[in-house]
Design a protein around this nucleic acid. Structure first.
Lengths: 146, 146
DNA sequence: TATTGTTATACTCTATAACTATA
DNA sequence: TATAGTTATAGAGTATAACAATA
């Protein structure tokens, strides 16, 4: 027997379920790279913003300073990210050559992943989503390390 | 300095960020009840579907059988849910009187929580969201215990 | 004093495999 | 054989508090 679920008419619930489906699909797309979603997002932000700091990456992605530490450590261990001291308390992050190659690979994978979902939606629907979702985000400034 | 982040134009990323904001808001709304989001969603599904089984609740919410165990245990310890054997291997779940009161309280809290976000969106935008989000979910049947 | 990075730690949700006792 | 519930365990992300070094 299939149950009723009034939560289906709730925005937060629908967002969570849809987000979970896309995250699971992304994880599968990245599986053989041995990189987690949080790590690839950091990698891409560093690719776009050479010489940024760890805290800045965290602010861009709503990841707290403390939680950035293992992410950047892992990217450095993997030889994808390098850093040099800036002023004794902060670092400038850049991609290594391997990191740049990896970032391109990641972009291709994300393109494929996104396409699987975006192709199901019309252009006006996509416009609505990209207008509404940021509104939800800024509604409550409850995001990490705001 | 503020960084650029091309992920902002990705559907999966926007869904994740928006979902995280709403989840954080819901957690705050529930904080003094000492119930987690996963527990209240199970509570509500049981309220709607008296005598359902644990596995059915999991299927409705995309929570795996194994992960339902601590959720139901906790709701029973709290005296909110009762169960009786059906056929030796399955149980029928119902709310206790306390559970019904709690479910009503939870509904009110979710109403307030949802209202904070929904009031920022127009009716046609909401219609679009409730049409598109289920499409995303069904795109890949990657959901738990499918 | 405020900031950057860090450590330690706990919590929440999710995932898999394997077991039991039933049916 | 298949199903309902369970156990154990690991992984991923997130949260807080506190610290050192530096600005």
């Amino acid at each position: 027997m299939t149950l009723t679920n009034a939560l289906e008419s709730r925005l937060g619930y629908q967002l969570r379920r849809a987000s979970a489906v896309m995250m699971a699909d992304l994880s599968r797309e990245l599986a053989d790279m041995d990189l987690r979603p949080a790590e690839v997002t950091a990698l891409l932000v560093i690719a776009e913003n050479p010489d940024c700091s760890q805290t800045e990456v965290g602010q861009a992605l709503a990841i707290k300073r403390a939680n950035m530490v293992p992410i950047i450590s892992r990217l450095m261990e993997r030889g994808l990210v390098a850093r040099r001291r800036i002023d004794g308390r902060s670092h400038a992050l850049t991609l290594t050559d391997d990191g740049s190659k990896c970032a391109k690979d990641v972009q291709d994978r994300i393109d494929r992943h996104e396409a699987r979902f975006v192709e199901l939606l019309s252009t006006p629907d996509m416009e609505t989503l990209f207008r509404c979702l940021p509104v939800i985000r800024t509604a409550r400034e409850a995001e990490a390390e705001a």
